[in-house]
Design a protein around this nucleic acid. Structure first.
Lengths: 242, 242
DNA sequence: CGGTGGTTTGATCAAAATCAAGTGAGGTGG
DNA sequence: CCACCTCACTTGATTTTGATCAAACCACCG
């Protein structure tokens, strides 16, 4: 596969693990089936048993789960370089849905070549394992967010997490970040209603913390927003070398 | 180390991965520092960089996180056979606390011998990786629980998860399970207040679903409780072979 | 130019939080 | 053995947060 396809991935892995040139070459040599997908396109469905993992190359994606009562909870938002369903390598069945948020380019990597790579190159295995552990660390923070913080703080926290994560893969424009989610989607990520999201956005705007434009979020006062959102990025483990 | 120490662990790993006798022997040969700890004893603190992982041998433990606003969220409950801080192998710093719930026996396994084991025996590596992935799957379900379900449903769901997980390691007594948590701890796990937990427990009791006795939970009508708690155990991936 | 999907705003309602005052079981020391 | 203390739990009254319901409003688009 071409370098451009795996670029965001290798960049992210290199940030925490010392990959040598052979490791990088092995990743670039993976057979990857690249596809363009429309916005809001389901990629893998809850209950399925996929035989490939999906590398997000361009665009945004999200994972979500429906309750029996018919409510949707968004579990995570994904940016280029993420492999959101890496867990399908070792967990037979999906326990949630995985979909694009906006128009996206994704690359499917078969389980078989991926397992071979992991068995041959232990350093890549450890780097990928670490990625799934960071994934879990983010879930933990989301439990805290949804369980213990009032709505407006939840939103502030989410925006700062996205800013921090986009910075790593070069998705920032000064203090502005793309976030192609409507209010219903934000609501499902935060465990509140869309109406309430609207009111909360208004409040953050009026406090001079954030500006919202279509699918663009502009952080007006990051320091105050961090205090307001109780945001401390250690849970993202951006420095987590061995 | 003696077989008894690693028994619950090897039993759990064997349930999903075909470990051969050499794998089992390698696990039993790990140097494990076994200790008895009192109830409510902090084992690893948020922000620390431990150099060992903690295998829970006997008793219950939990992971939790304090918000800047001073609220506590319990992130997971652990039973014998779990290695709740396995992530510390690849994530330098703890992003949460880890403590015992009742009197417990734990075994500390140094990161160095554990990494060696992982590098030598790929099948064990994959089994442990899978354990961390199941951990993450449980976090996902907790996000849904706290984000989308009313309090009484959350409690029912939690009780059923504990029953299901205890069954695997042989911690059940018919339809009764030990759960050494007080109402404040349940509240912090469910994202509600202790007062509300009290009222909810009353409701479940009055509906004939569950009986509570000290630290004992008796499931009176599992089928109805599963419906009530919207519980579907697929997220625990008990069958997740490759 | 009329849809349509997304957002805003207001009015009302419900779930859970908070505040406050008991109750009750176990454990300790006189 | 009893008095008392403490901690956990229960219950009631009130308040708060966010949900629900409903009606505009608005921008973009065919």
């Amino acid at each position: 596969m071409s370098k451009a396809v795996t670029d965001a991935l290798t960049r992210k892995l290199s940030a925490t693990t010392n990959l040598d040139s052979e490791d990088i070459a092995a990743i670039e040599a993976l057979p990857i089936d690249v596809r363009s997908l429309p916005a809001r396109q389901l990629i893998v469905r809850d209950g399925e048993s996929p035989n490939a993992c999906c590398l997000l190359i361009e665009g945004f994606a999200f994972r979500s789960k429906m309750t029996i009562a018919g409510k949707r909870q968004i579990l995570s938002i994904h940016v280029p370089g993420d492999i959101p369903d890496l867990q399908s390598l070792y967990l037979g069945k999906m326990d949630h849905d995985f979909s694009t948020l906006n128009e996206a380019t994704v690359g499917f990597i078969g389980h078989v070549p991926l397992r071979q790579l992991i068995r041959r190159r232990i350093r890549i295995a450890e780097a990928l394992w670490r990625e799934t552990l960071i994934d879990a660390a983010i879930f933990r923070e989301w439990i805290v967010n949804v369980g213990q913080r009032p709505g407006r703080v939840r939103l502030a926290h989410l925006l700062l997490e996205m800013k921090q994560r986009l910075a790593v893969v070069g998705g920032l424009n000064g203090n502005a970040l793309e976030l192609p989610m409507n209010q219903q989607e934000l609501a499902d990520a935060l465990g509140i209603t869309a109406v309430h999201v609207s009111r909360i956005m208004k409040e953050l705007r009026e406090r001079g913390l954030v500006e919202f434009q279509r699918h663009l979020v502009i952080i007006r006062d990051e320091k105050r927003l961090r205090d307001f959102g109780e945001f401390d990025p250690i849970y993202l483990h951006e420095d987590s070398g061995t």
